[in-house]
């Protein structure tokens, strides 16, 4: 009856990822659990980006549906661990290319002002 929109606003075609998505992917290059992902994001951004538990839960589920990340075991243990998939790594590569391109355009225009 009420369609649920995807919780993460990534424009999948253009390759632009939200900051949250990108950080979650980065935190999962080594297997990590929910609390670890939260701490990773907080540490790497020096507390600028804080992710609430509900938001993180939604993001993990969305990324799992897209098969960018996958749970490690069958989730029997209390702390479920996740890891990035091949597709997830490809998405991160595309994002790096897009960001590098964006920076080079910005530097071209703004010159040495930065």
């Amino acid at each position: 009856m009420f369609l649920e929109e995807s919780r993460l606003r990534d424009s999948v075609k253009g390759g632009a990822l939200t900051e949250v998505t990108f950080f979650i992917l980065l935190s999962l290059y080594t297997p990590n659990h929910g609390y670890g992902i939260m701490k990773f994001i907080e540490e790497k951004t020096q507390g600028r980006l804080v992710l609430g538990a509900g938001s993180l839960y939604g993001a993990i589920n969305t990324l799992q549906e897209r098969s960018w990340i996958t749970p490690l075991d069958d989730g029997k243990g209390r702390k479920k661990e996740y890891v990035i998939t091949k597709t997830g790594k490809e998405m991160a590569d595309i994002e790096i290319k897009r960001l590098k391109n964006l920076i080079s355009i910005a530097e071209e225009i703004m010159g040495g002002q930065v």
Binding site: L51, G54, S55
Partner: peptide, 28 residues
């Protein structure tokens, strides 16, 4: 949901699109 106070505000939902989704079931 109960959390041990670590001096930071306690929000379950921190992304704007996610906050919008949080209120949708309530509105519905």
């Amino acid at each position: 949901v109960e959390k041990k106070n670590d001096g930071k505000p306690f929000n379950l939902h921190t992304m704007n699109c996610d906050k919008a989704n949080y209120y949708k079931p309530l509105r519905n």
